[in-house]
């Protein structure tokens, strides 16, 4: 591998990895506070991409109930993206109210949250198909303004090319990660959130409304999921209602690798999985997925708490 190839893969891996990180953080936030994996998170990712698309482009195809729909008003992309993420956050809040809180209140088997969140995912994905079909939708490149499609620079004699979209995505992800880090580490809100995650009973004794913080967490989680979906959508297109499924599963690998419930762990895990995907030679691309899961299996064997996680938590 030449230096240029190495750099190429590195940049590429970090860019993909940063989206994984953002997406996986959505899982992590909910896990850290409720101790469950929200299987509906992949569906929120998909929904977010569709919502942003609807507001930024708004052209729909020939299938589904809304066939031929063309939304007359289009918002500038940054506004649409922000609204798309907020709406995804609200959907996530709705999911908590409909599928998670009733379970907690009724004292069901905690594992049932897996089933109910799976049910929500099924509803979301099929509702998308019901309304706008399975067609592929895609953002025109102009949404990011008048940019060059790729950035080229040379190292010695060889040339490194990276798509501008990926650089932008990387930038957005970093900005979000830094603000999120600040929010959680430095603000009163973050402190309270961590207290709830640490021990809900104590937190409620301290006067923190646990249920409200759970809602906040779901909002943040959905926001991040919708953001990741929209960003991936701008880079690769929104490839049907199921396009979040692969990310949903990959995201689970990320959070385990980094350490369940660990926020810096999710970021590290995301970057590592992104890099692995970039560095697997194309001839073995068929085994790409297997490589991340094999790594996941191995990590669990030697260090079940993940790279940055604390010792085993007895949660589902």
């Amino acid at each position: 591998m030449t230096t240029a190839q190495f750099l190429q893969n590195l940049l590429n891996g970090i860019s993909i990895g940063s989206v994984y990180a953002i997406f996986a953080l959505g899982y992590t936030l909910v896990f850290s506070i409720l101790g469950i994996i929200n299987f509906a998170h992949g569906a929120v990712f998909t929904l977010g991409a569709y919502l942003t698309y609807a507001m930024a482009v708004g052209q729909f195809g020939i299938n589904g109930l809304l066939s031929g729909l063309s939304i007359p008003v289009q918002l500038p992309f940054p506004v649409a993206l922000l609204l798309g993420c907020i709406l995804s956050g609200l959907v996530s809040v709705l999911i908590e109210r409909l599928a998670f809180r009733p379970l907690r209140n009724r004292g069901g088997d905690a594992l049932l949250a897996l089933v109910s969140s799976l049910g929500v995912a099924l509803v979301t994905v099929n509702a998308i198909q019901y309304f706008v079909g399975s067609e592929i939708y895609s953002f025109p490149p102009e949404i990011y303004g008048d940019i060059k499609p790729a950035i080229t620079f040379s190292i010695g004699e060889s040339v490194v090319v990276i798509r501008t979209v990926q650089v932008i995505i990387f930038g957005v992800c970093m900005a979000v990660l830094v603000s999120l880090g600040f929010l959680i580490a430095r603000t009163r809100f973050g402190k309270a959130l961590r207290a709830v995650a640490e021990n809900p009973a104590t937190a409620s004794l301290l006067g923190i409304s646990v249920n409200r913080f759970i809602l906040y967490t779901f909002f943040l989680s959905g926001f991040l999921g919708g953001l990741a979906g929209s960003l991936v959508g701008t880079s690769f297109g929104v490839a049907g209602p199921y396009f979040g499924v692969t990310y949903g599963l990959q995201g689970i690998a990320v959070i385990v690798l980094g350490g369940l419930g660990s926020i810096p762990g999710s970021v590290l895990g995301g970057i590592i999985i992104g890099l692995i995907e970039a560095f697997v030679p194309p001839d073995y691309s068929a085994y790409k997925e297997a490589v991340s899961f094999a790594l996941l299996f191995l990590i669990l064997m030697v260090r079940p708490q993940g790279l940055l996680g604390q010792s085993q938590i007895q949660k589902v």
Partner: peptide, 20 residues
């Protein structure tokens, strides 16, 4: 077309109302 939407709803409802 809507059968899987209803299927998903049933999953949620059953998990909530049949906790055991």
């Amino acid at each position: 077309d809507s059968r899987l939407i209803i299927n998903g709803m049933v999953l949620v409802i059953v998990s909530i109302y049949l906790p055991q």
